[in-house]
């Protein structure tokens, strides 16, 4: 199995596999986010306390939870790249970083527009919000470190170490609402016990969470393919591709 897996570290095969997976990821992401958002906006029942303002949850929670998952995926890739020197893993980490940064930005902004009508403020410096802001800075740090070096092997090592060290922030975000007093409400979706949410609200939320996950996959595949081409510009197969598609 390892031998089979290893063959996909070859840039050309990785590029082709990513191209084959991309339409499936895009279609599934588009479908799920479409269904989840329309269901959440139009058909989910009104919240008895928060009225219709709670409908922000259908993008806020997916963006926030996936901003953390994307970070773990990026850090795992960076770890594989550092330890086993698999360049494709470094490129994958570089491809995920901007996607995660945008998701974190969305989580913060939608949180603010939800906080204003419900808490009366766009922002408070409490544990959950601040640690999520730190996550955004970690993403930006990884992106800028990777961009700062001309030698991309060195760049991936530097950015990878920052990504791995930054993992410490993930449990802090996750448990911040339990460890400290916070304006932010604790998790409504629980894996081990029954969720404190009726099924008519939970279903579109779960669809959107999965949809956001698949969407991260799709955008990462697009960026991963471009990253492979950029790092393999001297290889014959990339040069053929550039001759065929790159000339205007």
């Amino acid at each position: 199995m390892w031998k089979w897996l290893h063959s996909y570290a070859d840039p050309e095969r990785a590029y082709k596999l990513a191209g084959k997976l991309l339409p499936w990821f895009s279609a599934i992401a588009l479908g799920m986010i479409g269904v989840g958002s329309i269901w959440g906006l139009m058909f989910a029942p009104v919240d008895y306390q928060q009225g219709d303002s709670y409908r922000i949850i259908f993008i806020h929670v997916p963006a926030a939870s996936m901003s953390m998952s994307a970070y773990m995926a990026m850090a795992s890739s960076a770890f594989i790249g550092l330890v086993w020197q698999i360049k494709a893993a470094d490129w994958a980490a570089a491809a995920i970083a901007p996607v995660g940064a945008v998701l974190t930005f969305i989580a913060l902004i939608t949180g603010a527009t939800w906080g204003k009508p419900m808490w009366g403020t766009w922002w408070v410096w409490d544990a959950r919000l601040t640690s999520e802001l730190v996550l955004l800075f970690l993403y930006l740090g990884v992106i800028s470190l990777y961009a700062a070096f001309e030698d991309k092997v060195l760049a991936a090592r530097a950015a990878g170490i920052l990504a791995i060290v930054g993992v410490i922030n993930i449990p802090i975000i996750k448990y911040s609402v339990e460890w400290w007093n916070s304006l932010h409400q604790p998790a409504t979706i629980k894996i081990t016990e029954e969720s404190s949410m009726p099924m008519e609200m939970l279903a579109p939320l779960l669809i959107n969470i999965l949809g956001f996950g698949v969407m991260i996959g799709a955008i990462t595949l697009v960026r991963f393919r471009a990253e492979i081409l950029a790092r393999n510009g001297m290889r014959p197969w990339v040069r053929e591709l550039a001759k065929a598609e790159g000339v205007k």
């Binding site: 009104v46 219709d52 303002s53 963006a63 945008v102 902004i109 939608t110 009508p117 697009v222």
Partner: peptide, 23 residues
């Protein structure tokens, strides 16, 4: 949106605009 139009549509607007730009 039950009086919350500004906040709800601002949230959805920024979300899909930034995702669109990223894509």
């Amino acid at each position: 949106m039950g009086g919350y139009a500004f906040y709800v549509w601002l949230a959805y607007g920024i979300t899909f605009f930034s995702l669109g730009t990223l894509i």
